[in-house]
């Protein structure tokens, strides 16, 4: 049975941020948090509870996978990366959002938005 990525939509904002943060390869929790902070210019700085609950859910749904990676000599951290399904879901969610942006623009709700 192949899972339809649309079944996972819409994603919560934090879930989307996590998936996007993992877009260019595997990261550990702190890494994900700082990536989100960077991207949102500090507007979003997820607490550990929120972050890991979201990660837990995404992992259970099969959108990301975790493994332990050694950092330095005695240090190992849990790192996460997207699964193929996760990638499809991100793409589907972004497409959905784009569609909404188009719709809002068509309704002249986004006057000052310049292309891009």
């Amino acid at each position: 049975m192949t899972l339809n990525p649309r079944n996972f939509l819409p994603l919560t904002p934090i879930a989307l941020e996590i998936l996007v943060a993992l877009g260019d390869g595997e990261r550990h929790g702190y890494d994900i948090m700082t990536a989100i902070e960077r991207r949102t210019e500090g507007a979003m700085s997820p607490n550990p509870g929120t972050l890991y609950r979201a990660i837990d859910r995404l992992a259970r749904e099969g959108l990301l996978r975790s493994s332990d990676r050694a950092f330095g000599r005695n240090d190992s951290r849990r790192v996460f990366r997207l699964t193929p399904l996760g990638k499809q879901v991100v793409a589907a969610e972004v497409a959905r959002l784009m569609d909404q942006v188009r719709a809002a623009r068509g309704a002249r709700l986004l006057k000052k938005v310049t292309g891009g």
Partner: peptide, 14 residues
């Protein structure tokens, strides 16, 4: 068990 250590670490870093 799954995330406790990582969560604490993240908290400490924050």
């Amino acid at each position: 068990r799954e995330y406790g250590g990582e969560m604490q670490r993240l908290f400490e870093e924050r």
